[in-house]
Every structure is written in C-alpha cells, then in structure tokens.
Design a protein around this nucleic acid. Structure first.
Length: 486
RNA sequence: GACCCCAUCGUCUAGUCUGGCCUAGGACACCAGCCUUUCACGCUGGCGACACGGGUUCAAAUCCCGUUGGGGUCGCCA
C-alpha cells in the first residue's frame, strides 16, 4: 500500500463532462496502479451554480463508468467515506477562512476594500492590465480605519519567479509579474477556487494532481499558495484537453459531451473507458488498443501520457464499442440488451431465457452499439409490415412469388425445426430449382422480417418458430398477389 | 493584447528525452478484393504524415532559433 492520494474535484454545476471523466480515469488509474487512494471532492463553493441534480448526475456517471471513489461524499444511500472529510467544499468554509486569516496574520495576504464596481471600471478601462489594489501596502492605521467595511482578502503575489515541475509538461516557469493579487476570500467569507483547492489538496494529503491543462497557468497561483501556506507541494500533471471532431473545445451543449449520453445511445462503459484512456495515453505494449478497466489499471503510467490535444472520433469509438460487445459473454450481452428491448415495449418476459440467449447470440457479432439491437430483432416481437420498399421492388415480383410458394411447401413439411435442417431443406430446394441459395434467401428474409438485412436467415427462422414462419410467408404471398392485381 | 502549452497520415498515435536500426510503424476511417444467405464480423491489400524556414552535425521526425497554426489562462466562476 503506497501513500499515493489522487482526486477528482468536479464542480457540480453541470453533468459529468467527457473531459472530467478522462481526468477522473487518469487519477483513478494512477491511484490504483500505485496501490493508493482515489478521492472524490465536490467543489461546490459557488452556491449559485451548484445543483443537487448535477451532483447526482456526476456520481451516477462515475458509477456507470466503474470509477469508484475510496473517499468521498455521501451518495445514493452510501454514507461519506474517508478520514479527511467533509468532501464537499461547501462544508469546509471554516477551514478556508482559518487559512486565509493565517496568511493575513503573516502579511502574505491583505484586506482589499475596493468595490466590485471600482474593479470593473478599471478592467473596462484597461482590459489588458493587471489590477493593482491600492490596499496592497496600505498602512495599518488606514486599514483599521475601515472597520468592518466589506473587504475581500487578496493574496500578496511575491516578487520573483514561480517554477512548476510538471510530470507531463516538464519545467514551466512564470514571472510573478504576470499575476495580480488574486482574491482568495470573498467579502461574504466564501473562498475562491484557488484557495479552496490548495487548502483541500494540502489537508487531504493529495500527492498527485492530475488535471486538464486549462489549469496550467492556474498552477502557478497554486504553487505560490502552497509555498505561502507552508505545505509540501503535490506532483502536478497537466494533460491536454479533449476537442470535438472539428478540433474545438467540447461544447457543453453538444450531445455526447455528457458521459451519460453515451449510455443512452447504447455504448458500453467499458468502451467509453477504453476510448477516453486512448485519448491521450498509449500503452508501452506496442500497437495494443483494446483494454478493460482492469487491464488499464495494470498498464497505466503517467510517463505514457501524450502532450498534444486529441480530437474525439466517433467512428473509432464505434469500433471499440463493437470490440467490447463481441468480447462479452452471451449471457452478459443478453442482459444488457434486454432493458433496451423492454423499453421498446417488446414483451421479452414472455420468452424463455434460453430463447433470449439464442437471439442475443445471433446478433452479438453484428452490432456496433447496443441500441441497434432493436432494428436487428424487432420482427421477433411485432408484425413485419410494412415491408421495406426497396426489398419489395427487388424480391416481391413473379420470381419471388414462385420461390415463396415452393418454400412454403418445404417449410410446411419440415418437422425438425432447426436452422441446420431448414438450411439443408432450402438448399435442396434451390438445387432442385437449379438456382442459387441466395435467390431464395432474399424473398424469405423479406417475408419473415420485412427487411433486407438482419441476422442469419435460418437461425432467425428457427427462433421465430414454424407457425409464425408459415403465417408470414402466406401473408407475403397474399401481399404479392395484391400487388399483381394493381 | 500579454503570458503559458502544443505541432508526425483525414483522426488517435509509435518513434523525439538518450540524433543514425525511420525509404517513418500500428489503429480508426476511406478504397479494392476475399469470405458469405443479407448486413455486419473476419482476412488480404491499397491510399495516406514528420506545419514552414533557418541553423548545429558526417547524419535530424528527433537538438537549437524563428515563423505560422491550434489550444489555454488572464473573474469577488471552478
């Protein structure tokens, strides 16, 4: 057991973003790989933007992905876990205030009585300049004279240079002149993000901070605060952000930015995990791309993280999803498609588990996403009409009619209703007719399923049952007859 | 605007730190073919990149500088 402690610290002001999931995954993987601990901390200091519905959505998202936290807030009936709580920043206000006061006492921070209006006016006037508070070096008497007037606490950015030794970015240095004296405590006593993260990371004994590189320039502020507060610095690793297929930042509004969108669209959590892991990390095992969460855990290293931003590629995700679907056991696959079929109103409860397993079996190798099970199997659960138009044109003409009439006879006289027997019988019929099997298969498929594509015909016919097959062929013949009369 | 990060096939990437094994490898996508009762799957092959310009060196995708392009940050948001 190592003392590695990683965290994901989302702000519950929106759903679980795919980028947040990637960050969480990397932290989780590194913690697990090193035998450490993964912590979930809710950064809900901004009451205006925080919403319990988002808290729920995020936790649910992590759960769905299989990213479980060792320490974190109460969720779904499971009480708070961990010895460094509470794990919601809204419940840690006193701690931040105490640390801010300490900085104040030590002269590393100061009270700023400037009003928001004054600052806004300055920024509007000189948008590219940093704001210099006149209170930075105000005489104590002047400060005392202000009494209890509302004041924010600002961190007194020291002279000099701040250096970050980032695990991914290498050495990054900034002249402290680039930073103005940022606020750490609002007049109402609420902490600002920078103070809260640093205090929490310190008090929660976080050893490694893996996060998006949108925080890279913030990291300088955090390093300065760590130094001022006298806490040991964690290791930082800033990874690049995920972009959309156009190379832009993944918009929060875009479908798919929310991790749970993918669940709803029929993607496996295993595939999402595998895919986002690959979006910025490669295995030391050359040319290997398929990983389960457990396998990732064994292979993951910070050293193999990529420095450049990656675009989200739906096609590759689809491929990976198909790979993961095919590696499921039939029973597992069956159990995952059942709720989808049920949601369609299909009466799956009327079927035996064995029958459902067989249906799953003949579809598992064909579909890239779980949701596509519907178009693959709907004819098992409801009548076939209307027939696919292009199929009718192609297969429901004179030839097709003759074929179906012959097949009807063959089917009617077949008692051993198995795909093997059916296949052999139709093959024999084709031989007798001096034609190819495919000539017969197409009209039969259209008659039985209403479609031109689908699972293997004889497997599907077996599962459909003799009675239904005969009825559907008769229906098709009637349909063709009606067509001919027009 | 300032500062910071990044830059290999359309996309994800290997190779860059520790120059030569790189006439740059793999995967997705795309194209062709094979398999085949359809669609898929699978298999085989094809297409396809070191952003640009300077240097350093016997030798540069790899090191240095510049340019360009992309991204990020500059809140009493996180």
């Amino acid at each position: 057991m190592s003392n590695t402690r990683c965290r994901i610290a989302p702000s519950p002001s929106g759903f679980l973003h795919i980028g947040t999931a990637k960050t969480a995954l990397y932290n989780w993987l590194f913690a697990k790989k090193t035998g450490g601990v993964f912590i979930l901390r809710l950064e809900d200091t901004d009451a205006e933007r925080t919403d319990e519905q988002y808290v729920h959505g995020m936790c649910e998202g992590f759960r769905w992905l299989g990213i479980e936290w060792d320490e974190g807030p109460e969720f779904g009936g499971v009480p708070e876990k961990g010895a460094y709580g509470p794990y919601r920043q809204s419940q840690r206000r006193e701690l931040y205030r105490a640390e801010a006061l300490r900085l104040l006492d030590e002269g590393k921070a100061y009270k700023c009585f400037c009003t928001k209006e004054e600052i806004d006016a300055f920024r509007k006037d000189r948008p590219h300049d940093r704001f210099m508070s006149p209170w930075r070096d105000a005489a104590p008497s002047k400060v005392a004279a202000m009494g209890d007037a509302p004041s924010a606490v600002r961190f007194k950015v020291p002279e000099g240079e701040t250096v970050l030794h980032d695990v991914i970015q290498g050495e990054v240095r900034w002249n402290n002149r680039e930073y103005d004296d940022f606020v750490i405590l609002k007049p109402n006593g609420d902490p600002i993000f920078h103070l809260a993260v640093v205090v929490d990371d310190a008090h929660m004994k976080i050893t490694h901070v893996i996060r998006g590189d949108d925080h890279l320039t913030n990291a300088a502020r955090h390093v300065m605060l760590f130094e001022a507060l006298g806490f040991p610095l964690p290791q930082y690793a800033h990874h690049p952000l995920v972009h959309d297929e156009q190379g832009r930042k993944l918009s929060k509004r875009m479908h798919g930015a929310n991790v749970l969108d993918w669940r709803d669209d029929g993607y496996l959590p295993e595939a999402i995990i595998n895919y986002i892991a690959l979006l910025g990390w490669t295995s030391e095992e050359e040319n290997r791309e398929f990983f389960t969460l457990d396998e990732l855990k064994d292979h993951f290293t910070l050293e193999r993280l990529t420095k450049s931003a990656a675009r989200f590629d739906r096609k590759k995700l689809d491929w990976l999803n198909g790979q993961h679907i095919r590696r499921l056991s039939v029973e597992d696959f069956r159990d995952r498609i059942l709720p989808i079929l049920e949601a369609q109103g299909f009466d799956v409860r009327a079927r035996t588990p064995e029958w459902l397993t067989r249906v799953a079996e003949i579809c598992q190798g064909k579909i890239p996403t779980l949701n596509q099970i519907v178009q693959q199997t709907d004819f098992f659960f409801r009548p076939v009409t209307p027939y696919e138009e292009a199929g009718v044109k192609k297969h429901f003409h004179m030839d097709g009619r003759l074929c179906l009439e012959a097949v009807l006879g063959v089917f009617a006289s077949t008692d051993d209703w198995t795909s093997k027997t059916l296949h052999d019988a139709v093959q024999a019929l084709a031989d007798r007719m001096g034609t190819g099997l495919r000539k017969l298969v197409h009209p039969i498929r259209l008659a039985l399923t209403g479609k031109t594509v689908g699972p293997g015909l004889f497997e599907l016919a077996e599962l459909l049952g003799k009675k239904t097959c005969l009825e559907r062929i008769e229906d098709a013949l009637a349909y063709i007859a009606a067509l001919d009369e027009l």
